[in-house]
């Protein structure tokens, strides 16, 4: 039974990783670089909810919507100010720039909110028990339901809207997409907005599940990347599966190894994938 409980916890962690990995994969698919500031965008999202929900005492759903919008807008502004200038550079320059952006964002977070750890709500939430002795906290139900809703929305967007189709076209072949008259700048803006919103959602859910502190996003970046690579980087659907696999493996590993080595499990899975099948379990990009 303990195993089933761990699988449940793993699914919750996996949902958070999946949302992060989908954002990483989307930006990678369109802009061809691994965004190292994605983790710190998650942290921003988590802190916006802290301000709106915990400090201003507004309802949680409203705080989440505000946070998604603020983080998405911030991501678009960063692109306008910095990343846009590197459109014609080698994508690795973008990677280095995003690494610098990660530190800029984190030091801003630390300047505004300080280094200490925050929680959304004080006090202990009672876990709900259900069939077979499994336990789940109300916040964790919010995480699972929220993730499912976001992923359905993402799926409908990518499959049904014109912009979603354009995004997939650019991800498949940017040159060909441009030739068919797709406005790539618009697609890039849309990618950043979605990536930012998804990062915020991942950060908020991480904050709901654990605590809010300045390094939270950076600390989870490695498993998020591992999930994106496992699913085939550039493939948002694979990233969801990758997130769940990494999340569940990390929780199950606590049966055998010291829980502080959880990120090492993500890394080990990533290394195996890179050796065996670098394009990920679902077709992604390796070159």
């Amino acid at each position: 039974m303990e195993i089933l409980q761990l699988v449940l916890y793993g699914t919750i962690l996996g949902s958070i990783l999946a949302l992060g990995a989908v954002g990483v994969s989307l930006t990678f698919g369109i802009l061809r670089f691994a965004n190292f500031s994605h983790g710190d965008l998650m942290t921003i999202g988590a802190y916006v909810v802290f301000v709106v929900f915990t400090v201003m005492k507004l309802p949680l759903w409203l705080a989440i919507i505000v946070s998604l919008a603020v983080t998405a807008a911030l991501t678009a502004i960063i692109d306008k100010l910095i990343y846009r200038n590197f459109r014609n550079s080698d994508p690795v320059i973008l990677l280095i720039s995003s690494f610098g952006m990660a530190l800029i964002l984190r030091s801003l977070i630390q300047l505004i909110w300080g280094p200490s750890t925050q929680v959304y709500e004080k006090g202990i939430q009672l876990a709900i028990k259900f069939g077979g002795g499994l336990r789940i906290k109300p916040d964790q139900i919010i995480i699972l339901v929220g993730t499912v809703l976001l992923i359905i929305a993402l799926h409908l967007f990518l499959r049904k809207t014109k912009m979603g189709k354009a995004m997939r076209a650019v991800a498949d072949n940017a040159e060909l997409a441009r030739l068919t008259g797709i406005n790539t700048e618009k697609v890039i803006l849309c990618t950043w907005l979605m990536g930012g919103a998804l990062a915020a959602a991942a950060g908020i859910f991480l904050g709901l599940d654990t605590r809010v502190f300045p390094e939270m996003g950076w600390n989870i970046l490695l498993p998020v990347f591992a999930a994106a690579i496992l699913g085939g980087i550039g493939n948002p659907y694979g990233a969801i599966a990758g997130g769940l696999v990494i999340g569940i493996s990390q929780e199950l590993s606590t049966q055998f190894i010291d829980p502080s080595y959880k990120p090492a499990v993500a890394f080990a899975i990533m290394v195996v994938i890179l050796i065996v099948r670098p394009t990920g379990i679902f077709a992604g990009r390796s070159s």
Binding site: A34, L95, F225, I233, S260, P263, A264, F267, S286
Partner: peptide, 27 residues
């Protein structure tokens, strides 16, 4: 493991190595 893949993979793997080394040093 990483050098025959595109440069992003080396970046990610090297971040991973740094993280694991840090965990080992701490624990």
């Amino acid at each position: 493991i990483t050098l025959n893949l595109r440069s992003d993979y080396l970046a990610i793997a090297s971040i991973g190595i740094a993280e694991i080394i840090r965990l080992v040093l701490k624990n």
